[in-house]
């Protein structure tokens, strides 16, 4: 069944792979981006070239008014959002003793406030149609913790508690709320950490390698599908056996 899906932070990395996956599963996709319109347009073009339907929509997802405007645009052009993928995320890594309030606030706003804002905006339509999927991308950092990522880990752990609460609130309306927690995935975000760290992490994973964005997208595709109708409030860890 074809649904209208919105992927926040859908222009690059894991979000890009999720947008492409949902489109190839037959869904109509709104690709949200913060600044890189060229990258978002690329994703849209790739989807359209493959015979799918997609639009790009700009919004800072941590901003209340921007999120309202984004939902208005998506609903006008594609219809009510039935599958929301909260994927947008940033890092501002530093040791806590060197982490200023700005680095804290920025990460919480983009990674966690956005989940609150977008879920709330999507819920209205989902409640009316008695069907919905909210899938948020967390991180293994939010489960195991990671030095230098107090802000990021807090935001990612927050997503899990948020999702479990909402799953209970709206389960009776046939809306499922789940989380995918990636381990170390090859993206621009992790590339900056250098090959030494990447090799070290890969060696700690049971599967002995880093993950690919498509492998996270596959988990999101499953949670968005009819096969996952009875799965809610869960965190699916996709980390190659890193945190066992």
């Amino acid at each position: 069944m074809s649904r209208v899906a919105l992927v926040t932070g859908g222009s690059r990395g894991i979000g890009r792979a999720i947008a492409l996956r949902l489109a190839s599963d037959g869904h109509v996709v709104a690709v949200n981006y913060a600044a890189n319109s060229a990258a978002a347009d690329d994703v849209v073009e790739e989807i359209v070239a493959a015979g799918g339907t997609a639009i790009a929509v700009q919004a800072d997802v941590g901003d209340t008014d921007a999120v309202s405007a984004m939902f208005e645009t998506v609903e006008d052009r594609l219809g009510k959002v039935e599958v929301l993928v909260n994927n947008a995320g940033i890092t501002r890594d530093d040791l806590l003793m060197r982490m200023g309030p700005e680095a804290w606030d920025e990460v919480i706003e983009t990674n966690l406030r956005s989940v609150y804002l977008c879920s709330r905006a999507a819920m209205r339509g989902m409640l009316r149609s008695r069907w919905g999927r909210i899938i948020s991308v967390s991180s293994i950092s939010g489960i195991s913790g990671n030095p230098g990522q107090a802000n990021y880990a807090a935001s990612k752990a927050g997503i899990i508690g948020f999702s479990k609460s909402i799953a209970r609130e709206i389960g009776s309306r046939n809306i499922t709320v789940n989380v995918v927690a990636p381990g170390f995935i090859e993206t621009d975000m992790t590339e900056g950490l250098g090959t030494e760290i990447a090799d070290e992490v890969a060696s700690r994973a049971a599967l002995g390698r880093l993950g690919r964005p498509e492998e996270i997208a596959a988990a999101v595709g499953y949670l968005a599908s009819d096969d996952a109708a009875y799965v809610t409030g869960q965190t699916l860890v996709v980390d190659g056996g890193l945190a066992l």
């Binding site: 409640l127 009316r128 609130e169 009776s172």
Partner: peptide, 15 residues
């Protein structure tokens, strides 16, 4: 009607 039901009713009234 549960508390979420009241919220839904108000949304329906708005629409």
């Amino acid at each position: 009607v549960d508390s979420l039901g009241v919220v839904e009713l108000l949304m329906a009234l708005e629409d």
